[in-house]
Computed example of a mutant assay.
Amino acid sequence: MISISSNELIALINSFIWPLTRILGLIAVAPPFGNNTVPVQIKIALGVMLALIVAPTLPVISDLDPVSFNGILVLAQQLIIGLGMGFVMRVLFSSIEMAGEVAGLTMGLGFATFFDPQTQGRSSAIAQFLVLTATLILLTLNVHLSMLATLVESFQTIPISTSFHSGFNYQKMVIWGEQIFSVGMRLSLPIVAALLVTNVALGILTRAAPQLNLFGIGFPITIGVGFLMLALILPYLLLPLENLFQQGIETMQSLGLPATAPPSQPPMQR
């Protein structure tokens, strides 16, 4: 008869529950895993499978009871680390969504909104189109596999321990949030600039010919110019998005490094 002592049982639970919590934290937030359209059963199955692969390679904290106060603190710490790493990639998609929102509002498509199951709110048609395009590029470049590989490597740079100083760089994660605004404006800049010139030309035309109906000709022209610019910049979006995803993976890897200075923002290549 096979018998397992309580200490051995605690050791087995510890070796599995800590990495599982961190993995599920990333899967719950990071795209495309964190999308609400992905069934919860698939997310849990993926997390369990990765935890079973990672757990045998990690040192076991055998003297820590998982249901004790310290065990719950370690559990919360691993969850925060996983959520923080997923937050890095989620910020990039939020910046892409913001670029679509700015472009759509400038085009006059503020009324063309849809329900976004990811954010549980409204989202413009242009934003949804750019997010879907970015998701396809992410899957094509295997960035989702790079995210999982970075997550597995994080158990070496940010080891599981009972210390509150786990090595996780919270400051860098917070600073990374500014990418929503900087990247969003850079991605939408070509469309916004073209529509600015279009609106100035329409203003001059209306001033020269007051009998023209600005609302009658203005909306079709701005929407047409916006779609034309969107079609022109789509072939050139691959390189900026590839650099953006690479920067996100590098940021995920650097979350386990000490903060020295705020990260510099290299210019996005086009």
Rank of each mutant, 00 (worst) to 15 (best):
Asn70Met: 14
Ile72Trp: 06
Ile72His: 06
Leu73Val: 14
Ala76Asp: 10
Gln78Phe: 00
Leu79Asp: 06
Ile80Asn: 12
Leu83Arg: 02
Leu83Pro: 07
Leu83Thr: 10
Leu83Asp: 12
Gly84Val: 08
Gly84Trp: 00
Met85Trp: 04
Val88Met: 13
Met89Trp: 00
Arg90Tyr: 08
Leu92Thr: 10
Phe93Pro: 11
Phe93Val: 13
Ser95Glu: 14
Ile96Arg: 07
Glu97Met: 13
Glu97Tyr: 00
Met98Arg: 13
Met98Thr: 11
Ala99His: 01
Val102Phe: 02
Val102Pro: 01
Gly104Leu: 04
Gly104Phe: 04
Leu105Cys: 03
Thr106Asn: 05
Met107Pro: 01
Gly108Val: 05
Gly108Glu: 02
Leu109Met: 06
Leu109Cys: 04
Ala112Tyr: 02
Thr113Met: 13
Asp116His: 02
Asp116Gln: 06
Asp116Arg: 05
Asp116Ile: 10
Pro117Glu: 06
Ser123His: 00
Ser123Ala: 15
Gln128Trp: 02
Gln128Asp: 10
Phe129Leu: 15
Val131Gly: 06
Thr133Leu: 15
Thr135Val: 09
Leu136Arg: 07
Leu139Gly: 06
Val143Arg: 02
Val143Gln: 07
Leu145Cys: 05
Leu145Ile: 01
Leu145Lys: 05
Met147Leu: 14
Met147Phe: 03
Leu148Gly: 05
Val152Gln: 12
Val152Ala: 14
Glu153Cys: 01
Glu153His: 05
Ile158Val: 03
Phe168Cys: 01
Phe168Ser: 01
Gly177Cys: 09
Glu178Cys: 04
Gln179Tyr: 05
Gln179Cys: 08
Phe181Thr: 11
Ser182His: 02
